[in-house]
């Protein structure tokens, strides 16, 4: 049977292949794990079924979405604040990430600085925006500023790592030629390094704007302002029809944001 495996036989193709034991064992192990983990997490079928009952009522309270004028005013102010948070976080995140990323690139920086910066970036990256928001709420109080600062730090972690990686892949020959003309270091960066990393840099920056737009809905849940705060309040007041309005607005804004950042990418490449 194995001999014909290259040529599809007219019989069902399945039989032409030997049984894949590693795959089967893996699947059994996976199934066992799912049962084990479910029992640890106290996930039972009964709870599930019970939940579906709740879910039905919950969904019926969400429909139709609430478009009352006072709710829409709340929605707009929250959404605009989120937009502002995302814009500021992206712009300042990019501004701070460029020097940080270049300092972390081992071919542009010197070793101690590069290692220190890489450590710093790893630290920034390992904290979820929500945790950063909690810390900034403690530092600068409730409101949009805490959200902006949290997302700036989160953006720095993401962008500077990618900038460092892009910078480490550039052709050093192009840089050397510019160095040989007697150009100052900053000119070497601007003329020989920037054009090489620019296409990727624009890609990440556009992505970061999308990501900050999504995350700006998040920082509000812990006091960082924006639509997240509006959403959290609506949840606490069991205003589920307004919750649905907000969620639809978030999906709409994020989708529009993705289209816009796609345009931006095309304009600069």
């Amino acid at each position: 049977m194995a001999g014909v495996s290259d040529v599809p036989a007219p019989s069902p193709a399945r039989r032409a292949f030997p049984p894949n034991w590693p795959l089967r064992i893996g699947l059994v192990a996976l199934a066992l794990y799912v049962f084990y983990a479910s029992s640890i997490l106290n996930i039972t079928w009964a709870r599930f079924v019970e939940g579906f009952g709740h879910g039905g009522r919950f969904l019926s309270r969400m429909f139709p979405p609430n478009f009352a004028a006072d709710k829409l005013a709340l929605l707009y102010s929250g959404m605009f604040e989120s937009l502002q948070i995302a814009i500021l976080a992206t712009v300042f995140g990019i501004l701070f990430s460029v020097p940080l990323g270049l300092a972390a690139a081992r071919n542009l920086s010197f070793a101690p600085l590069a290692w220190f910066t890489r450590g710093l970036i790893a630290l920034l990256r390992s904290f979820h925006p929500v945790i950063l928001a909690i810390l900034f709420v403690k530092a600068v109080g409730f409101g949009a500023l805490a959200g902006v600062l949290a997302l700036i730090v989160a953006s720095m972690g993401f962008l500077s790592k990618l900038i460092a990686e892009a910078a480490e892949e550039i052709s050093m020959k192009q840089m050397e030629a510019i160095r040989a003309t007697g150009a100052p270091f900053l000119s070497v960066l601007v003329i020989a390094v920037a054009p090489q990393i620019m296409p990727r840099f624009i890609g990440f920056s556009a992505y970061q704007l999308d990501s900050n737009l999504r995350n700006s809905a998040l920082v509000g849940l812990v006091g960082g302002g924006g639509i997240g705060a509006t959403l959290f309040t609506a949840f606490q007041r069991f205003d589920y029809d307004f919750v649905l309005t907000i969620v639809l607005a978030i999906i709409f804004t994020v989708t529009v944001g993705e289209i816009l950042s796609g345009w931006m990418r095309r304009l600069f490449q």
């Binding site: 020959k173 003309t181 090489q196």
Partner: peptide
């Protein structure tokens, strides 16, 4: 750098900034 300004260099692989 000031001294390098007065020394031109031509490379084997041209080393132009490609983009």
């Amino acid at each position: 750098r000031e001294a390098r300004r007065k020394i031109g260099m031509v490379f084997q692989e041209y080393n132009l900034v490609e983009r």
